[in-house]
Design a protein around this nucleic acid. Structure first.
Lengths: 340, 340
DNA sequence: CTGTTAGCGCATTCAG
DNA sequence: CTGAATGCGCTAACAG
């Protein structure tokens, strides 16, 4: 048993392949009788049109590409859930590419997609990306791109992000209100939009509360968790006056937690930690860890929705279509903090 | 600017498209001089061969399909990491489909792939799958399938799993050795291979330690976390003699943890919990929760490796190529347990 | 309402 | 070493 093609099916039916093609696609110019007959025999022979032939003919691939830094972060898993759902609703297929936060990998992947393999792209930028020539090229080729979460602001596309500035502000304010005065801030990479905007929020909140900004309290993470752990521990040792940590990303919140445990620092009494997280686990298992949860699933869905709108209407994605969704601060330990 | 095709490139070069095609594919019958010239101009014009045309011509899609129940479980995210890596190494593209554990969705997805869209399939079975006709059809069509993690044993394909029986045994034994006598077991779905094999391990360990099996201590979960939480709490209330819980899956371990917290039961003193988990978070944040970690990343890689072997050698995947990898028991609280 | 024909972009004959 | 011609499977334009 092998794949049945249109011609074979037409032969079996005693019809021309064009007729069969039309019948299969419910063309109005085919009589109901033959349409039904065609469909019945097609079902019987398990006929499925070859997607690649249609694609070649129609210049429509019915597939989108999703480029992500990683998948070991729950945020992106949830985002894909949303993306895949919207894709399936629209009859689209989803190609997935991981860059492991490497700019080189991102370039390589972009090149694959320069060939017309996909009708559109959803992109969360790698932290290692420096230039954006590879993305400009895709845009120039007319491939619609929607950026989400980690976006490059120079590239003029629609973006779907969370309220990074606002949540950075809120997080910091949460700690300040709980009595913290020396709040450390941990970020992933200076070049990442999410990091810089959260940092801005952090600084603004400090300023609003008349707490001086101290550059020594800002730590940039690396790709290695072990290294991050060491650095955080060193910072906490060197600066025993630190009474709060705002981690701009889940991994760093966990490493902070771990560092405190290692150093025997009590959470949340001696130190208060707040960090982004999309793992229910974190909030469940560590009530002391105040978390900020991003609507990852909704972000995926919205990004996909904007992309499909552009694809089906043959319009470019415009920065004006950008969306900013709200994060949610979940402070299970807030009472404890306030009580102090 | 739009896509450049072979013909245009050939025109630019003053060569026949066949020559250019050969040059691009490093054919031995092309002189080094023209090959270099072709490649240089190709680079300059951003020529990328249209993958769908090649596919039509060669009958090779260079893409695989990955069918998964969900992605809200860290196990599958890690597995995709492995799969994607091996795919990229082999120059392959990865299409992803989520079934949300629905048998209907799995059937629909299978149908998409009946059209020659992919060269092979990696599959983790939906818990809602009843018949396997849709998979048999794919096999009959000659599409290689490798099953991983959640496998159907009737379908004769290679499988990559973990030592579910052994780890179920170990987990149970771990609790028994820590002094537990009434060990509850929480499983996902009776029809799932991982569940039934872990259950077998559980029963065997009980038997080996002369602890009678009590069917009332076995609870099957639902799709709803809230419902699971309620059921677990009810079980713990009705059976205050329970002194240990073996959760066969992360979500259920977390729900157990939560249920104990709600009921004010101390962990790990009053009750000991052991559960599968691939979240570093869980072990990090809840030392009281003994976890069994599956080598998810390796499973993805191995499954992909077996699939690519079959694809490149045009051989069917045989059950004989199946692999069983080892899980790891991480008992941070084991000392506490043993001390009791 | 149905059939004939041509061509999407590429790779592979077969000829030179 | 290079070029011309053919067809992968499908659809759309053009006939009838």
């Amino acid at each position: 048993m092998s794949f049945v093609n249109l011609k074979q099916l037409a032969g079996e039916l005693g019809l021309a392949s064009s007729t069969v093609s039309r019948a299969m696609r419910d063309s109005y110019e085919i009589s109901t009788a033959t349409r039904e007959r065609v469909k019945s025999v097609a079902r019987q022979l398990n006929y499925q049109p070859n997607p690649y032939a249609s694609c070649l003919r129609n210049n429509v691939t019915k597939t989108i590409g999703v480029i992500l830094p990683q998948l070991d972060n729950h945020f992106f898993s949830l985002a894909i859930n949303g993306i895949e759902e919207v894709a399936q609703q629209n009859g689209y297929h989803v190609l997935i590419y991981l860059t492991h936060d490497s700019g080189e990998q991102e370039k390589a992947v972009s090149k694959y997609l320069t060939s017309g393999r996909v009708d559109g792209i959803l992109l969360a930028l790698a932290s290692g990306t420096r230039g954006i020539g590879h993305l400009e090229k895709l845009k120039l080729l007319g491939v619609p791109i929607v950026q989400f979460d980690r976006v490059n602001e120079t590239l003029r596309t629609a973006t779907v992000t969370t309220d990074d500035y606002a949540s950075g502000y809120q997080a910091t304010e949460h700690l300040l209100r709980a009595g913290c005065r020396k709040v450390a801030h941990l970020l992933v990479s200076e070049s990442l939009s999410i990091s810089s905007r959260r940092l801005q929020g952090y600084r603004a909140a400090l300023a609003a509360h008349h707490v001086p900004f101290d550059a020594d309290l800002v730590l940039t993470g690396t790709a290695s968790n072990d290294e991050n752990l060491r650095r955080i521990a060193r910072l906490l040792t060197q600066r025993p006056d630190i009474d709060g940590i705002f981690a701009s990303v889940e991994r760093l919140a966990l490493s902070s937690y771990q560092a405190c445990q290692q150093l025997g620092i009590a959470i949340p009494d001696a130190i208060k930690i707040i960090g982004f997280s999309n793992m229910e686990t974190a909030t469940l298992l560590a009530p002391a860890l105040t978390t900020i949860t991003q609507p990852a699933y909704a972000i995926g869905k919205e990004a996909a929705r904007i992309l499909f709108q552009a694809i089906t209407k043959h319009k470019p994605v415009l920065p004006a279509q950008s969306l900013e969704l709200k994060s949610e601060l979940i402070a299970r330990a807030s009472t404890a903090c306030a009580a102090r």
